[in-house]
Simulated scan of single mutants.
Amino acid sequence: VRALVEVDLVLYPGEILGLVGDNSAGKSTLMKILTGAYQRDSGEVLVAGTPSHFKNPHESRDVGIEMIYQDFALCGNMDVGQNIFLGRWPRRGPFVDRRKMYTEADAVLKRLKVDVNSVFQRVESLSGGRQQSVAIARAISFEPRVVILDEPTANLSVMATERLLETMLELKKHGVAQIIISHRLQDIFAVGDRVMVLKRGENVGDRFVKHTTEQEVLQIIVSGTRDTAMTADQALAKAA
């Protein structure tokens, strides 16, 4: 089984790219290659023009790639500050420097304009939307170049979804590139710059959000092929 076939993905600083396609299109596989969870069989990954090969997620994190999974991967019995710095709590000698940890956690939340009552609040007491915000804050604390969000609005309320999209736009202001994997085209069209369609492991087209419609993207998902695929620039030139 070939999960991906000659897929090209380009992402620019501060850009929000929507990655769409049916189940088994190859979206998660591609992202796991970018984060080092899976090893590619061929091709190359360039980060800021430099060839990179990630043997594990720690190596992708070292060059600034973070992924936020659908289940958030948080520890519910710990508080917000502890989760943001989970596994790398700042130390003063042999002891955890709690003052520094909570001060820096609070600074990250304020930077993202995240609505969490307190860094001392246990994560399990937070709503799904606020837990999502904590997961994003943890990713941002690593100062990433790229943040990948896997179905981030799948289990969120309308209000929580709006807050998440606002947070994504805030990240964009700071120059953080983002890839959002989603079946909800309305979310991608609300904040995205480009949308890319995968089908059976192939890139069957991408479009600038400002110059396409949800209907056109759905048409590409249903009937697009690699032979008819166009980049966003090619599609824009053809429409001119």
Score class of each variant (00 low, 15 high):
Leu169Thr: 07
Arg130Gly: 11
Pro90Asn: 05
Ile180Ser: 04
Val114Asp: 03
Tyr102Asn: 07
Arg99Cys: 05
Ala137Tyr: 02
Ser127Phe: 05
Arg111Pro: 00
Val119Met: 07
Glu166Phe: 01
Asp115Trp: 01
Thr167Phe: 10
Leu185Ala: 12
Tyr102Lys: 08
Val119Gln: 03
Val119Ile: 11
Pro94Trp: 09
Lys100Val: 07
Val134Leu: 02
Glu166Asp: 15
Thr167Leu: 14
Leu169Pro: 04
Glu170Asn: 09
Gln131Trp: 02
Asn117Gln: 10
Val147Ser: 00
Gln132Pro: 10
Ser133Asn: 13
His174Phe: 06
Val147Asn: 00
Gly128Ser: 04
Phe95Ser: 05
Ile188Cys: 10
Pro94Lys: 06
Val108Asp: 09
Ser182His: 13
Leu109Tyr: 04
Ser141Gln: 01
Asp97Ser: 10
Glu143Trp: 07
Arg111Ile: 00
Arg99Ile: 13
Ser141Asp: 04
Gln186Glu: 14
Ser133Ile: 09
Ile136Leu: 12
Leu171Gln: 02
Arg163Ala: 09
Ile179Pro: 02
Leu171Cys: 12
Leu185Gly: 06
Val108Arg: 06
Asp106Pro: 00
Ile181Asp: 11
Pro152Cys: 10
Ser141Leu: 00
Glu162Arg: 15
Ala135Pro: 02
Glu162Cys: 08
Ile188Leu: 13
Leu156Ile: 14
Phe95Asn: 03
Pro144Ser: 02
Asp97Phe: 08
Gly129Arg: 09
Val147Asp: 00
Asp187Phe: 13
Ala139His: 00
Ser182Ile: 15
Tyr102Met: 09
Asp187Ser: 11
Pro152Thr: 12
Asp187Glu: 15
Glu166Val: 06
Gly175Gln: 12
Asn155Ser: 15
Arg99Phe: 11
Glu166Pro: 05
Arg163Ile: 03
Leu171Thr: 02
